[in-house]
């Protein structure tokens, strides 16, 4: 190797230093519950919700938004819980759908504590998670409900899950059908009363 071809050693101090990438500033979005309260959520946490993530990336390209995002059918308590969940799980991968039954879901300790809530709250939390498409929360919350069925007889399940008996179902359907029938009859009667007078008005108009 000739002298010209010899590699030139550059002293390490002169080597260009890669600058540390600036930390991406955390962007926050404001969610507005259906009862008018506002809750903030970080852009990282938003990724746990497919619905929210699609909304902010499609409409606003991920930039900060001035106006709040209305959550038409989520009340504040459920919205606060949902945001708490997403913030705690931010950065975690979204679970992949698996077709196994029973689903292979184990509720971690933090989530176990998080889900120690009243059944009414749990119900509304599932509604919110379903609406916002938060897979992990759906898995844990639905598993929690499924565990209520463990070791229970059909009768006990009826009580726990407020399942009406077939007779009660039939009676409710019958009552609904009768109500509908009565409404239609009322409507028909109202139309019948309006009918002749309207026809009379037409006759008068024709005579004139």
């Amino acid at each position: 190797m000739s002298a010209e071809q010899a590699p030139v050693e550059v002293p390490a101090v002169d080597a260009p230093v890669a600058e540390a990438a600036p930390a991406e500033p955390t962007v926050y979005y404001t969610l507005e519950s259906c009862d008018g309260d506002e809750v903030k959520i970080s852009s990282e946490a938003v990724k746990q919700s497919k619905t929210l993530n699609d909304l902010v990336s499609n409409l606003h390209g991920g930039a900060e938004m001035n106006e709040s995002i209305p959550m038409d059918n989520i009340k504040k308590p459920a919205l606060v819980k949902v945001v708490e969940f997403c913030e705690h799980h931010k950065g975690e991968p979204i679970p992949v759908d698996d077709d196994t039954v029973p689903k292979n879901v184990t509720i971690p300790e933090w989530d176990e504590e998080f889900l120690k809530i009243d059944n009414d709250e749990l119900f509304h939390l599932i509604l919110a998670a379903n609406y916002l498409d938060i897979k992990q929360l759906m898995n844990y919350a639905c598993k929690k409900v499924a565990l209520m069925a463990k070791g229970k007889s059909p009768e006990e399940l009826r009580v726990i899950f407020e399942i009406p008996t077939d007779e009660e179902d039939e009676a409710a359907e019958k009552a609904a059908a009768e109500k509908k029938k009565a409404k239609e009859a009322e409507k028909a009667a109202a139309a019948g009363e309006a009918g002749p007078s309207a026809a009379g008005a037409e006759d008068v108009a024709a005579a004139n």
Partner: peptide, 12 residues
Amino acid sequence: SDFPLLRLPEKA
């Protein structure tokens, strides 16, 4: 003590 399971949306 009870949970209105059948009032959940179909997916849930």
